[in-house]
Design a binder for these strands. Structure first.
Lengths: 169, 1003
DNA sequence: GATGTGTAGCTATTGGCC
DNA sequence: CGCCAATAGCTACACATC
């Protein structure tokens, strides 16, 4: 009996550990592009799990599959037509258009064709800030005893001194 | 041929036109036949010239080109014609050069004149469009120019000036594509300056340098980067792009710039920069950049150096390098073919250089990682020999003559070599007892060396631990080393003293005194009493303790030792005595360095014993609130680590520090932007503690979130990045976490909006303006954080039922009227449609929300944008509401009718006052906290009420109306808690009372 | 300024070629 | 065997549109 229970405990612990590690790498993976924070976070990150209707409109679409296919056909037709139009327009170099140059060389008047002054210089020189490489690993490590780390996700309210990792220098 | 001789002027004219048009007509369709087309054009031109119709040719040529100018970028027709013209011009110029080479002087000058006239008028013609209001025309003009730049020949000076002047103006064109082509043009003007002229960089180059840094378009910067001439002045501007915000630009530094630099790179770029570049490359967030960098190192550079790894390490300046470990790892991993070629002959171990020792360390590590045991055996000696080698270098470094013989650089290098040997030793196979003992001896002796550098102490102790039988053995040995150092010092002091006295005594002719004073000195040291005064005057006071320097040395060793152990304190008397004899006195010491080390040591001990930690929380708290910056930071780390380990057990109890006091300390540190480093520690630490559910206080969490958005912290990169990582991890890791944010989100938003509005009117220029995010961005961010779809471990139906965003919206619509400016409200309202609402959510909440929304639509004086957004939202909401109603009906049928009745009531009497006053919070109290496993002890409702604007003054932390400024932490709370409990609080004096004296506390 | 579409700049694979 | 084009597929960025 004893052996068995200890085994199951061990397994449970192992599972927990796996779970913890999984979660850690999940967050590291999904947040690694948001490191600059604030205005630099991008919408594309953490792709919404579109497993199910991701919005109120979804129901409508599901109700009218026929319309959709029709739309699709029309769309594809329109698209190809538009593309052909764009690509097919040839220029008639024989036609003489006296007004062409008047218009294309027309003085700019007031139309501003210049970059606004404040956009011409940038204090950051468009360079990335130093990357402090925050990660679950960094977060879980103790500050003054980096060889020891805590569990974040499992064992809420923690926290036995878990996992001593001797790290190489 | 289309045109033939004709007498009629008009006729020739039109024929020229038609001929040209014909070529262009055909050339626009395909690139095929361009060579022929160019030839035809040349023929036409020659014929026209020969007939005296040169001007006509030029005129019609311009005319057809004009037709192409309005074509936008990537329009193939435009591209083809541009290429055609460029090919024509290039061909003409080639002919001229060839003729010149063939010495056909007469013909050449004539043809050259024709060509120059043609170019002159053609360029003048297209330049007419360089400031066209049509961006496409501007684009095509500069496009033409860029393509013909190479073959432009010699220009008339006035035209040259006009051209340069026009281009200079266009580097600030609104359109990035125009600017990009201008860059291509400008590159041609810097060609002749590869010969460096020290103080006279060409205008074109200067402009490109400015553009490479300042242009808002990544593509323009890229163009400038790739086209700048490479010389000592430009190179740093080019290489700097390894940190460009644009991923492609970063990558190109490695795949293009550095690659093509080849060997020059090592000759002209100093090692610090190379190291930095490699570090940036290998640590980049983008895998593509990382692979580009590793490819550069492991293929291009390695081949360039002919596989010379030592040479490579020299280039990196290995002793100073930050990335050499990663670089070597990358090399070994991507080029496994070099592994068998690396060998370490026996002789080498006594002739190590920094590079070789480092290579061996990385190589050893790689072999261990990949279990290449044969290779290890082949190259690395057995343990006892290894110990000898190690000892060889230690002796060399620390022998008595060392100080005279070795330069500082020598010592530095020897330290480096010793470290590498120790790192290898740490992983060595010590199953052979003789080898183990040998190594143990060497390392033990080394650790006893007074002058040993801290990094060697660190790795030395690690090796010692690897060599020890068990942790107790390790601690025994380590403490023995520490005690020896201390005793030696005391002994030395006593000897010195004795010698001093002996000198005196010798002159006094008395020997007995010596022994007598020694006895007294020992006595006083033991008893702690000072000797009688008369003796002090006579003799030097006997030392009770080791000197300051020695204490530092001991504390350094003990802290590195404590870092490595996990055995509970109660099993280890030795450490307890270490605390009494070394650590506690250090904490009380007046020397700040010693005190910091002491606190650090004490902290490490606390991590081994809950009781000790509890006892010392007060001291650590005092250190944070009173200490200088360094001490503050250490103590803060200790507190956080203790909490991380033990949770709240260490506070809140008889004789314990109460957690509110500690909260207050955290607030204070978090808001003290005079010491940003401490802010970061506090932020990261608090995030940890919240994540581990050690802390669950809403107000403290709100402070965290406000810190993230607060403009005063905008320049604290580490803080921002810490939050950018931690807050989402927190929110997405548990429903309760997300709920916590949702509870405070509306309040956060309100405060920040008010702050933002204040900033808008204050005329503190644009800096402050940019320092803060716009409210709509903040809202988006908040909404994202509380989006249940981002939660981990959630099933679909759970997500659909989750109503945190709905709760937030209910708060949101209520704070909305408190935002003064219509503009701000508009910014917020346009984002309302991103909120996640489903029919699975609680019906009454949905219902309530529609009422609020409809109210908003009716009552508010709204601009169209907001109204549209609201109406769109409302439409969706109503649909969902209907669906929810259906569901509710079904459920009602199955379960009880009590609910149903209520819903009917709600439906039938929408919007009546009585209905509205059925407060949401009532429901929340029931639903909000009931399901939370009791983790959220604060009932949803009460927190919320407290936060309602009307009650603001009572107990919210930020009752001064302006969010997050200065001293907005309330003192009441602390005072209150102090009165209530017997807990120990911190008397926190104002800043002016701070002094180091406050630190001399007794335990 | 949110949105969808288009594009540049890659990577990886294939098959033909010397 | 390595080299090259051609091809498909990918993502972050740029552009267009309302």
């Amino acid at each position: 009996e004893n052996i068995e229970t200890s085994n199951t405990n061990e397994n449970a612990g192992r599972m927990e550990n796996l779970f913890e590690i999984d979660l850690m790498s999940y967050f590291d993976e999904s947040l690694k592009r948001n490191w600059r924070g604030r205005e630099h976070w991008k919408v594309r990150n953490l792709k919404r799990s579109n497993l199910f209707g991701s919005g109120p409109n979804e129901t409508n679409k599901l109700n009218n599959p026929q319309n959709e296919s029709n739309d699709d056909n029309e769309k594809s037709k329109n698209e190809t037509a538009a593309k052909k139009k764009k690509k097919q327009t040839e220029i008639d170099f024989f036609a003489i258009d006296d007004h062409l140059e008047e218009t294309i060389f027309a003085p700019k008047k007031r139309a501003n064709i210049d970059l606004p002054l404040k956009a011409r210089t940038d204090d950051s020189h468009h360079l990335l800030p130093p990357d402090y490489q925050f990660s679950t690993k960094k977060i879980t490590r103790l500050f003054i005893k980096p060889t020891q780390s805590m569990n974040l996700f499992t064992s809420r309210r923690n926290l036995e001194p878990v996992r001593m990792q001797n790290e190489k220098v | 041929m289309v045109f033939q001789d004709s007498n009629a002027d008009e006729d020739v004219n039109t024929r020229i036109f038609h001929s040209i048009a014909d070529v262009f007509q055909k050339a626009q369709v395909t690139y095929a036949g361009h060579r022929k087309h160019v030839a035809v054009l040349k023929k036409i031109q020659e014929k026209a010239v020969s007939q005296g119709y040169e001007a006509a040719f030029n005129y019609w040529f311009n005319a057809v080109v004009s037709k192409v100018l309005p074509l936008r970028k990537n329009e193939v027709i435009g591209d083809r014609i541009v290429k055609l013209v460029a090919a024509f011009i290039a061909s003409r110029e080639r002919d001229l050069n060839r003729d010149e080479a063939d010495m056909k002087q007469e013909e050449t000058s004539e043809a050259e004149d024709v060509f120059m006239r043609f170019m002159d008028q053609f360029i003048r013609h297209i330049l007419r469009g360089i400031e066209s209001k049509d961006k496409n025309v501007r684009y095509r003009v500069v496009h033409f120019l860029a393509m013909i730049m190479d073959n432009i020949g010699e220009l008339d000076e006035s035209l040259y000036n006009t051209l340069v002047w026009s281009l200079k103006k266009r580097i600030y064109d609104k359109e990035a594509n125009v600017r990009m082509q201008v860059v291509f043009c400008l590159t041609k003007f810097q060609d002749d300056e590869t010969i460096e002229d020290d103080n006279n960089t060409k205008d074109a180059t200067k402009m490109l340098i400015s553009l490479v840094q300042n242009d808002p378009s990544a593509e323009v910067r890229r163009a400038a980067m790739l086209n700048l001439v490479v010389n000592s002045k430009t190179l740093s501007f080019i290489l700097e792009r390894a940190r460009d915000t644009n991923q492609v630009n970063r990558r190109l530094v490695y795949t293009r710039v550095l690659k093509s630099l080849g060997k020059q790179c090592f000759d002209h770029v100093n090692s610090e920069i190379i190291d930095q570049l490699v570090k940036w490359g290998l640590e980049d967030r983008e895998p593509l950049v990382r692979t580009a960098c590793s490819k550069l190192i492991s293929h291009d550079w390695l081949n360039l150096l002919g596989g010379d790894l030592i040479g490579f390490l020299e280039k990196l300046n290995v002793t100073e390098s930050q990335v050499s470990v990663e670089a070597m790892e990358c090399l070994f991993n991507t080029r496994s073919d070099i592994i068998p070629k690396v060998t370490f002959p026996q002789e080498i171990w006594l002739e190590l250089t920094v590079e070789i020792s480092f290579l061996s360390r990385c190589f050893y590590h790689h072999c261990v990682q990949n279990q290449l045991n044969e290779i290890i055996e082949k190259n690395f000696p057995e343990a006892s020999k290894w110990a000898n080698y190690l000892n060889h270098y230690i002796k060399q470094r620390f022998s008595n003559e060392a100080n005279e013989v070795l330069s500082d650089a020598d010592k530095y290098n020897l330290d480096f070599i010793i470290k590498q040997l120790l790192v290898i030793g740490n992983d060595y196979d010590f199953s052979d007892e003789i080898g183990r003992r040998a190594m143990l001896n060497v390392v033990r002796n080394m650790l006893g060396i007074f002058e040993l550098s801290e990094s060697l102490v660190d790795i030395g102790l690690q090796v010692l631990k690897s060599l020890s039988i068990n942790e107790k053995d390790f601690v025994t040995m380590a403490i023995e080393i520490i005690n020896d150092i201390r005793d030696d010092d005391i002994e030395r002091q006593e000897q010195e003293e004795a010698i001093l006295r002996k000198d005196r005594i010798d002159s006094d002719d008395d020997n007995d005194d010596d022994i007598e004073s020694f006895r007294r000195a020992v006595e006083s040291r033991v008893s702690g009493k000072s000797p009688p005064e008369g003796d002090i005057l006579k003799n030097l006071p006997p030392p009770k303790e080791a000197g300051a320097e020695t204490i530092v040395v001991c504390l350094t060793r003990s802290s590195h030792m404590l870092k490595l152990i996990k055995m509970p304190l109660e099993q280890n008397i030795l450490i307890t005595s270490l605390i009494d004899t070394l650590i506690t006195p250090a904490v009380r010491n007046n020397d700040s360095k010693i005190r910091e080390l002491g606190v650090n040591n004490l902290g490490l001990c606390c991590l081994l014993d809950l009781h000790l930690a509890t006892e010392n929380m007060y001291i650590f708290g005092m250190c944070v609130s009173k200490g200088n910056s360094a001490l503050k930071q250490i103590a803060l780390k200790v507190i956080i680590d203790i909490f991380s380990l033990y949770g709240l057990e260490v506070v809140n109890g008889e004789g314990k520090v109460d957690s509110i006091s500690l909260h207050k300390i955290f607030y204070k540190v978090l808001k003290n932007y005079d010491s940003p480093e401490c802010q970061v520690v506090a932020a990261e630490g608090l995030c940890k503690l919240f994540l581990a559910d050690v802390f669950t206080d809403d107000d403290l969490f709100e402070t965290l979130v406000l810190s993230y958005f607060s403009p005063v912290n905008s320049s604290n990169e580490a803080l921002i990045q810490s939050f950018a990582f931690c807050i989402p991890v927190y929110c997405f890791s548990h429903v309760n976490h997300q709920k916590r944010l949702a509870r405070i989100a509306a309040d956060v938003l309100l405060r920040l909006c008010m702050l933002w509005e204040d900033l808008q009117v204050s005329d503190d220029s644009e800096k402050d303006h940019n320092a803060m995010l716009k409210p709509n961005i903040i809202l988006q961010q908040l909404i994202r954080w509380i989006d249940p779809r981002n939660l981990i471990n959630q099933k679909e139906d759970e997500i659909a039922k989750n109503s945190v965003q709905l709760d937030f919206l209910l708060d949101f619509v209520q704070i909305l009227p408190r935002i003064d400016k219509k503009e701000t409200r508009k910014l917020l309202l346009t984002n309302i449609n991103t909120v996640f609402i489903t029919a699975e959510q609680e019906y009454h909440k949905l219902k309530k929300l529609t009422e609020y929304i409809e109210d908003l639509i009716e009552s508010e004086t709204l601009d169209t944008v907001s109204r549209n957004a609201l109406q769109k939202f409302n439409e969706n909401l109503i649909k969902i509401l209907d669906a929810a109603y259906e569901k509710e009906l079904h459920r009602g049928e199955n379960e009880s009718t009590a609910h149903e009745d209520r819903f009917y009531q709600l439906l039938e009497a929408p919007g009546t006052d009585s209905d509205r006053s059925v407060s949401i919070s009532e429901e929340n109290a029931a639903n909000g906290s009931g399901k939370t496993n009791g983790e959220d002890q604060v009932p949803y409702d009460s927190t919320k009420k407290r936060r309602r604007p009307e009650n603001d003054g009572e107990s919210t932390f930020f009752n001064d109306g302006i969010p997050y400024t200065k001293e907005s932490v309330d003192v009441n709370m602390i005072a209150k808690s102090n009165n209530e409990s017997k807990n120990v609080g911190f008397a926190l004096p104002e800043a002016d009372e701070q002094s180091d004296d406050a630190m001399s506390i007794d335990i």
